[in-house]
Design a protein around this nucleic acid. Structure first.
Lengths: 227, 227
DNA sequence: ACAAATAGGTAAGTTAGCTGACAATTCGTG
DNA sequence: CACGAATTGTCAGCTAACTTACCTATTTGT
């Protein structure tokens, strides 16, 4: 990517649009663009220096590994999303997390949180944007979990599917074709259920004529009918 | 409270200790101290002007009311905690929330979001503290929800009890006596379970000799043994 | 092209914890 | 103190969804 283009991407980003060109440079954002290919892994959990990442383009998933080595997909992130040590906190030694690229090409941009902190010092406006972003994330997470807690598996599955398909479908509501990059186990992890139950629910929707799917893609005839 | 005392409270607060006397004044913090008695309600959800609140002393709980009018305790907050529109977000019209004093006397201090935002803009140190605080809150909530999802009710109950008792016990780990201001239903709401199950679990711990409790207080012999 | 690995499909057995119903206790207030 | 309301205690179903187990289809690597 050209320097110019990089600058303008950052300029458009909701978080960084308040930074001057000099501040961008100070943050070392521009030299830290990185392109990763599908299935490439970005470790950010036990990295030597804590970093904050933002996604320029593409899709990736956050996978967490527990003490027994079980891997669970925790989140699906798309362009504009933030991940990494966004709390400025020490990393929790108990859990291990990494990000893995789902789409063919994912462009991310990272910087050290210390640098970020320094920029905040000279540009407090960034702090407000940042808290708004964190607040947004908080809201989304709360929402997600509220669904998880109070609804049954079927409802959770349908809500997840709806959300997924709508995000990928960029606003469309009918005849959306989504590349099926998640396994049944992945989905089970995301909605806190089991592989078998997810399989069952997929087939249920298929038999009801609401969706059509193969291993490589999912076709939803009408998003609104899912509910 | 005397003006002086108010100033020093703010001066000690992790968030506001970086403010000069002039900034404090600009924030209009000092005129906005308020004392509420037990069971008094602080509405902050549909207030005409958005406010951020911090607790000087006492304990209160955040209660949310859903569309059907069911009330659920969402959070227990203590001195130093923040509540209200701390993410600078718009209020969600769909849900109604209020805070209600649990302890005999709760002193809170509030100010308008806009004023706060302005101070943040001109005080980088405050900006950093604030981003850390909000980030920390995000982490805590995420953690809470993760527990809710992946652990069984017994574990959730014990984790909750441990956390509660340790917060009230101010660091002590043995023979902590906690004023029991939560009903079994309240606790059930917090750990996403039912009244009956909470009753059962309380009695289980009691019979196991790990705790002792009446309607008015809970005595935990050794916090570490709970796990 | 084949074996090995991974993903999807189906079913019977099991269980944590929810529901509902009701009794016992405690609290609050005239 | 006495009555009604709120809270706590107990128990017998019930059921959604998890386990375990096994089999088939598809993908991947060499």
């Amino acid at each position: 990517m050209q320097e110019e283009a990089k600058y303008w991407y950052l300029h458009d980003h909701q978080l960084f649009s308040v930074l001057s060109r000099e501040e961008n440079r100070a943050l070392c954002l521009i030299p830290n663009f990185k392109t990763v290919k599908k299935n490439e892994i970005i470790y950010f959990s036990h990295d030597d220096e804590q970093r904050l990442y933002t996604i320029k383009s593409g899709t990736l998933k956050i996978v967490s590994v527990d003490a027994e080595g079980n891997e669970t997909v925790k989140e699906i992130l798309r362009s504009g999303d933030l991940f990494g040590q966004y709390t400025f906190d020490e990393v929790d030694e108990n859990e291990d997390e990494y990000a893995i690229a789902i789409s063919e090409k994912v462009v991310i941009c990272s910087f050290k949180i210390n640098d970020f902190e320094n920029i905040v010092k000279s540009n407090p406006q960034l702090a407000i944007r940042y808290t708004k972003l964190v607040g947004f994330k908080l809201k989304r997470i709360t929402n997600n979990y509220t669904n998880l807690m109070f609804k049954d598996v079927r409802t959770r599955f349908v809500l997840f599917l709806k959300d997924w398909v709508m995000k990928e479908g960029k606003g469309q509501t009918k005849d959306i074709v989504v590349k099926n990059y998640l396994t049944h186990s992945d989905i089970a992890g995301l909605i806190c259920s089991t592989r078998q139950t997810v399989t069952m629910l997929f087939n249920e929707l298929k038999n009801a004529g609401l969706i059509d799917y193969t291993r490589s893609e999912i076709i939803v005839k009408d998003v609104h009918q899912l509910a």
